[in-house]
């Protein structure tokens, strides 16, 4: 059923835990239109998994089903099973799920609030009220997002004063503040310049310690640089999933090869 489980095991034979996320038989519909067809894969823990494919192939949609963000869009339906640490996410409380599986979006979307309030947001809505721990957690998250030194004197300024790359890292810090186990990133660098992109890639490496990362990217070099595993989507189907070097050097499917050699998309 889950065809890449072996690959995951093989990649991290010493990993005590099984895969962090296991998706099986996932179909997804916007109204009557089916955009994901029978997707099955397993996401290994504490690694970076990249999803690539031409635009419109369903990568974002797939990512959203992993923390049920699709439920915020009217008329959507997901069939199949997603297990987080063996637990069915559809049966979980959605807020608990999203606390454990955070998300960073393609366009940075800081709140029109101060930098501090942005990072503290997730904690506050989860009932953190006391000042001290809040301030510590905010600092800690900003440090993890490698943003602390740049903003430590601007904490109470509007988040919109930051540059694009800083805003995106602020969004990552905000997601990290609630200490997610999985972080989903949907083309986080697509609007950024190369320097900001490099910073975020560096940041992703440092997060592997504590997080499982899944990144959607249209940039194949980026996938090759950062990810241990890569999945290739086409027309709503998962064509191939394997270790990144296999995907890029010895793809098993013709479509994958065509895509990575730039023959379409």
């Amino acid at each position: 059923m889950v065809d890449n489980l072996e690959i995951v095991r093989e990649a991290r034979p010493h990993a005590a835990a099984g895969p962090k996320l296991v998706v099986s038989g996932l179909n997804f519909y916007y109204g009557d239109k089916q955009v994901l067809h029978d997707i099955s894969l397993a996401i290994p823990p504490n690694q970076i998994t990249a999803l690539i494919g031409p635009s419109g192939c369903g990568k974002s949609t797939f990512l959203r089903t992993l923390n049920r963000m699709h439920e915020t869009i009217r008329n959507t339906r997901a069939e199949g099973q997603v297990l987080l640490d063996g637990e069915d996410i559809m049966a979980m409380d959605v807020v608990q799920l999203r606390r454990r599986v955070g998300m960073v979006f393609q366009r940075s979307n800081p709140f029109p609030k101060s930098i501090f309030d942005n990072v503290a947001y997730g904690l506050r809505v989860n009932g953190w009220m006391r000042k001290r721990p809040l301030a510590e957690a905010v600092e800690h998250s900003l440090r993890r997002a490698a943003l602390w030194d740049e903003v430590k004197d601007l904490l109470h300024e509007s988040a919109y004063k930051l540059s694009g790359g800083q805003q995106q890292r602020l969004c990552i810090a905000r997601a990290l503040a609630v200490d997610p186990e999985v972080l989903l990133l949907d083309e986080p660098c697509s609007a950024l310049d190369p320097i900001a992109t490099a910073k975020i890639e560096e940041l992703m490496f440092s997060l592997k310690e504590t997080c499982t990362l899944v990144i959607v990217t249209h940039n194949m070099q980026q996938a090759a640089r950062v990810a241990e595993h890569t999945g290739f989507f086409l027309h709503g189907k998962l064509i191939e999933f394997n270790r990144t070097e296999v995907i890029f050097k010895r793809p098993r499917c013709k479509e994958t090869e065509d895509y990575i050699t730039g023959r379409f998309g």
Binding site: F105, F111, Y121, V125, A175, V178
Partner: peptide, 22 residues
Amino acid sequence: PHSLREAALALGARKWQTVATV
């Protein structure tokens, strides 16, 4: 913008919290 609502929901805010605080 819808993206602000998404950001709040993705951080584990309830719908009413999203509406009231964002």
